[in-house]
């Protein structure tokens, strides 16, 4: 079985994000970029499935600017086998991305697509679900455990109030949550090998899709600063102030 793992290049989680002067978005010039942390977890899960003999080939795909090649190389250095860069200078929006991914799935015929549950840039949390709808495949979102048995995937999902376990008929879509695994370091020997792994450059049109923006960004602004809190001397005062604040 082939597994497809989409990976996104986003602002590094440790960077303090700043809004651009004109409010059109966040500042990306000279900012450290990295693989979306949820996508690292997705790549790691694919590698573990391969190590367990459930998967033969791991294909990583990124939709983004030329520099997204760096993100793909990181995935190859972690252990993916082959990469596809769908190059675009448009902002990648969930539906456009899902349409391109559908094209990639039609071309590559993976038995499983593992995605991050969301990208930490706009936190949309939509791509996996949209892809499942476009393909008409089963989906297991927010996975904290994945087991593959023949043509079934058993996925433990982190849902409000606890865990839910579902069986999916393959082929299927899985989106991963934070606690699924701890991604490995790209090891030095694998970094050296990654250079020789294939990385194909394609366009959205090659997959019969387009990435024209479907959304319009009206304005981007910083969240308001936190107001200073108050100190309470005991539980009774805490409860009464929560009541008067209308919280309880």
């Amino acid at each position: 079985m082939k597994v497809l793992v989409p990976v996104k290049r986003v602002v590094d989680a440790n960077v303090k994000v700043r809004v651009k002067g004109d409010g059109s978005g966040v500042e990306l010039a000279n900012v450290k970029m990295a693989m979306n942390p949820f996508d690292e977890i997705a790549v790691e899960e694919a590698i573990r499935l391969k190590d367990a003999g459930k998967v033969e080939e791991i294909i990583v795909v990124s939709i983004g600017p030329a520099q997204a090649q760096e993100t793909l190389r990181t995935a190859l250095a972690m252990g993916a086998d082959r990469a596809i860069l769908v190059k675009t200078d448009e902002t990648a929006e969930p539906l456009g991305v899902a349409k391109v991914l559908k094209g990639v799935v039609d071309a590559e015929k993976p038995g499983l697509v593992i995605l991050g549950k969301q990208a930490i840039d706009d936190d949309a949390n939509q791509t996996g679900q949209m892809l499942a709808a476009l393909l008409g495949w089963a989906q297991g979102t927010f996975a904290s455990k994945v087991e593959i048995n023949g043509d079934k995937a058993k996925v433990t999902r982190e849902v409000d109030g606890g865990l839910q376990t579902i069986d999916l008929k393959m082929p299927a879509i899985v989106t991963v949550d934070l606690r699924l695994n701890q991604p490995r370091y790209a090891s030095l020997p694998n970094i050296m090998k990654a250079k020789k792994k294939p990385l194909d450059e394609k366009s959205a049109a090659d997959f019969g899709a387009d990435l024209k923006p479907r959304l319009k960004v009206v304005k981007t602004e910083e969240p308001g600063g936190r107001k200073a809190g108050v100190k309470v001397k005991d539980v009774a005062e805490l409860v009464s102030s929560l009541k008067s604040a209308g919280v309880i």
Partner: peptide, 15 residues
């Protein structure tokens, strides 16, 4: 190089 950048990233993350 791409390789050097990956080595820096992985070493930094480890540290």
């Amino acid at each position: 190089s791409e390789e050097q950048r990956l080595i820096v990233d992985t070493t930094r993350a480890f540290v």
